[in-house]
Simulated scan of single mutants.
Amino acid sequence: MFSDVSKTAVDTHFHVFRAGIAQAGARYAPAYDAPFSSWQANAQPLGVGRGVLVQTSFMGSDNTQLVAELERWPGVLRGVAVVGPEATLQTLQPLHRAGVRAIRLNLAGVSHALREWSKAAPLWDALALLGWHLELHTDIGRLPEVLAQLPGELPLVIDHMGKPEAISADDATVRALAERARRSNVHLKLSGAYRLGGLNPGELSRLWLGELGAGRLLWGSDWPCTNHESLADYPGLLNSLHEWLGDEAVIETVLSTNPRRLYWGD
């Protein structure tokens, strides 16, 4: 079911790409096109009028298509880019003008040791100057060790429900993120339920609601759900949020108020 709450909704996590385009050595190269027009055809009828386009891991730091889409749809899109730890303010400024508001560090399936990133003070300073945040994606149970390697004041958005090992306030991931949220700017995306290793996404969403509060939560479709394409049922993905949270005022905060503030400054 969908109510008027979704009419100003924002999808904070989706991807666009072209078949066969991937960086050298990528573990995955798509066999199909996922154009912006297809995302829009799925989202708009449900009242999802804006989106945050996230650079895929297999496209690496070549943000060319990301920037092109942002420049083509300036009133509709914001972006999350991928850069290296050596990036500077001069690297980020053209991306900012295009509509990028964050960088992503995707550690899924790779080392979670941030040796190069621990020396990235110029990059963290640049993010602060631009009002950006760091988006993090880790393997299940690995978020605490990553948080310990990052500056404590760095604003964060955590992908795919944080991927804890258990649905418990005593889980190490839940404890670490809740503690971080008490002293810095942290948001968490209710997305990627199929990436949780079998945890119940409704129970986990309600746990995060209790630990972080509605003002820290976002929703993302993860469309077109790479490697899980059979689950890319857009109405079903959006309806899941209603099932998980239930309360329409909370859902409005998660779907509209929070993302418009974080990505557009509304």
Rank of each mutant, 00 (worst) to 15 (best):
G162H: 05
R142H: 13
D222K: 08
T64Q: 13
L237H: 04
Q90I: 08
L134H: 04
Q93G: 04
V174G: 05
W244S: 06
L237E: 01
E229I: 09
Q40Y: 07
A113I: 13
W223Q: 14
A102S: 09
G210W: 02
E229W: 11
F36S: 05
G152N: 08
G49I: 06
S38H: 11
N63A: 04
I158V: 11
S240H: 11
M161G: 12
P30Y: 06
G47P: 00
P151K: 06
D62H: 15
A176V: 03
G49R: 03
W219E: 01
L123G: 08
E229N: 12
L238N: 09
L199A: 04
H187Y: 15
D266E: 15
A98Q: 07
D33V: 10
E165G: 15
W132A: 07
T226H: 04
E69V: 05
A128G: 13
R115M: 15
Y263P: 08
G162E: 05
I167E: 04
G152M: 12
T56H: 03
L107Q: 00
L218R: 06
L129A: 14
G25L: 02
N63I: 05
V250T: 00
V76T: 12
R260M: 03
N42S: 14
A169C: 06
S168W: 07
A81M: 10
A41N: 14
S118R: 13
G213E: 05
Q23E: 14
G197F: 09
G192Q: 06
A26V: 09
V174Q: 02
C225K: 11
E116H: 10
P74D: 13
M1T: 14
S37R: 13
H228K: 13
L130T: 08
Q65M: 15
A166K: 05
K7T: 11
